[in-house]
């Protein structure tokens, strides 16, 4: 029981064992293998080196490799766990695992906190939120006056920054999110529940003889 004989041959460097990745994440072995099909598509779109670079990530997100976007940069930065400027398969699976509908809520809250804590200070600062708001306005061509932006920030910090020190701590973030559950919508990707049907070709490329589902 629990034995898997792997025929792990001809795999890209960085393609971690699907059984080990499934054990570490909420994905089954089949789902990890289906994700490898997606990973192969994205990682070979510009340079076929078995790694996703920023250009490839942007191309997959926007169908445009040159589109600069602060939020996509933040997500890429967090997926690039080893800080090498590229995302390998293991990091891709571990990061996407947080977005699975069954992933722990705490993991989703922590990922979102890091996303917004742009300077990695352990706090979400007002200036960071302002910078993100302005980036969103530019992206969406929405126009809001400075006055309105400041009032949105005032209102947000009034609710979230309960100790009134001008920044949002992890505890304050968790409290704020629990009162505003819609903020966690972006942290769940329903697609991940059906990943094996989206990429059925994983069956033909499976490196694992016995599939644990």
């Amino acid at each position: 029981m629990g034995c898997f004989s792997s025929k792990l041959t001809n795999q890209s460097p960085g393609h971690e064992n699907p059984v080990a990745l499934a054990a570490e994440t909420v994905f089954s072995v089949s789902e990890v293998e289906a994700l490898y099909e997606l990973f192969k598509n994205i990682s070979s779109s510009v340079i076929d080196d078995g790694l996703i670079n920023k250009e490839e990530f942007q191309l997959a997100l926007f169908k445009n490799s040159q589109k600069e976007n602060l939020f996509a940069d933040r997500v890429f930065y967090l997926f690039d766990v080893k800080r090498r400027g590229v995302i390998d398969f293991g990091d891709f699976v571990r990061s996407l695992s947080v977005f699975h509908p069954n992933a722990p809520r705490e993991d989703k809250m922590e990922f979102a906190f890091k996303l917004y804590d742009m300077d990695s200070t352990g706090y979400i600062e007002r200036e960071e939120v302002k910078q993100m708001l302005i980036a969103l306005l530019c992206e969406s061509e929405m126009k809001l006056s400075d006055e309105v932006i400041e009032s949105i920030l005032d209102k947000t910090f009034e609710e979230a920054d309960t100790d009134r020190d001008g920044r949002i701590s992890r505890d304050e973030w968790q409290n704020f999110v629990s009162h505003n559950p819609s903020l966690m919508k972006i942290m769940t990707l329903p697609y991940l529940r059906d990943i094996t049907t989206t990429f059925p070709s994983f069956v033909f490329n499976s490196a694992v003889d016995d599939i644990a589902t």
């Binding site: 997100l61 926007f62 939020f71 933040r74 917004y116 980036a135 929405m142 947000t156 609710e159 697609y191």
Partner: peptide, 24 residues
């Protein structure tokens, strides 16, 4: 938008819509 909190607005960004990764 003025009635929304900043994070609700930010989460509308296309850059945070990772569902696009799954589009073939």
């Amino acid at each position: 938008p003025a009635a929304m909190n900043a994070f609700e607005l930010i989460s509308m960004s296309q850059g945070l819509n990772l569902g696009n990764l799954f589009e073939k």
